[in-house]
């Protein structure tokens, strides 16, 4: 291919210009602030809130005072992820192998709630779990007064409800791609249902399991709305601590330290995902659409 130098340069400049707006957006609103966040986390606190230039580990040393928020988020994220997986896997399996002609419709019905307002979906449970909802029903049935709202149970329920679609979709994709002849082969070789599931289905759908786990775990770690509405200040996550530190008490250096720890937890999860993922074979790309 004969191409003059000037033309090549023109093409390069055109490419750079096309990329420039998006790159600027990423740099200014994501990358630079992340660097500032690190700087802030070692800084001192100005009297009226905000940041005072300094270099101290005080913010990190103060983190244990918010340990409950981290521990809550971590346990709930782990528990929520496992529950989503346990509940979502049979559904994904059903959709991929047994749903027949209604498969597309049923799949769409799983995805639709995910695209509807998160706030509204959480609000829905506020009424159901509130005193006029299930508790009053249970009281009428003679179970006594049971509080459901503002408990860890309510938060966990909200998490499973909101994130289940995000888990089912990648599971479905990997189970649907699974070669059904392998299942027949396993059966023909005398393996029982459970053995086939454990030795064929599960290993071959591990990519979907992994994608689903990471897709669900990360956003739950950063969750704010569910604990705020269904936990009622009794069950709070790092997200709630961060909103408090940045918007209410305006302790930005301490908030930055907490945010850095949240980012580190997420990075760890992603690293584990990539490590485990690269050990298997095949593509792990799962689209959200």
């Amino acid at each position: 291919m004969v191409r003059s130098g000037a033309r090549r340069w023109r093409s390069r400049i055109a490419t750079a210009l096309l990329l420039l707006p998006a790159a600027t957006w990423y740099a200014l609103l994501l990358l630079v602030p992340l660097v500032i966040l690190v700087v802030f986390s070692f800084g001192g606190r100005a009297p009226e809130g905000g940041y005072l230039p300094d270099f101290t580990f005080a913010n990190y040393l103060e983190l244990p005072t918010r340990a409950t928020a981290f521990v809550n988020a971590l346990w709930m994220a782990l528990g929520g992820t496992v529950l989503c997986l346990l509940v979502g896997f049979p559904l994904a399996y059903y959709l991929a192998t047994r749903a027949g002609s209604q498969r597309t419709l049923l799949l769409v019905l799983v995805v639709v709630p995910f695209w509807t307002s998160f706030l509204i979906r959480t609000y829905a449970w506020l009424t159901i779990l509130g005193n006029n909802g299930i508790p009053s029903l249970l009281e009428d049935l003679g179970f006594g007064h049971i509080v459901l709202l503002n408990t860890p149970f309510a938060v966990l329920l909200g998490i499973v409800y909101n994130y289940l679609p995000l888990m089912v979709f990648p599971l479905y994709v990997s189970l649907e791609r699974l070669d059904k002849r392998l299942l027949e082969a396993s059966k023909d070789l005398g393996a029982g249902r459970w053995a086939t599931f454990r030795q064929v289905t599960l290993p071959l759908s591990s990519a979907g399991v992994l994608s689903g786990v990471i897709l669900v775990f990360i956003p739950i770690m950063g969750e704010y709305i569910i604990p705020a509405l269904l936990g009622g200040g009794k069950v709070f996550f790092i997200g709630n601590a961060l909103v408090d530190l940045f918007l209410q008490s305006r302790n930005w250096p301490f908030g930055s330290a907490a945010a850095i720890v949240l980012i580190l937890v997420i990075l760890t999860a992603v690293t584990i995902y990539l490590r485990v993922g690269s050990r298997g074979s095949g593509s792990r790309e799962v689209s959200l659409l």
């Binding site: 990423y26 994501l30 602030p33 966040l37 770690m221 997420i266």
Partner: peptide, 21 residues
């Protein structure tokens, strides 16, 4: 890589980052 980070990062982190900017 940055594109995937922007998608997967929780909203709370984007909120803090943009507020700082």
């Amino acid at each position: 890589a940055i594109t995937y980070v922007a998608i997967i990062i929780p909203g709370i982190v984007i909120g803090i980052a943009t507020l700082i900017f």
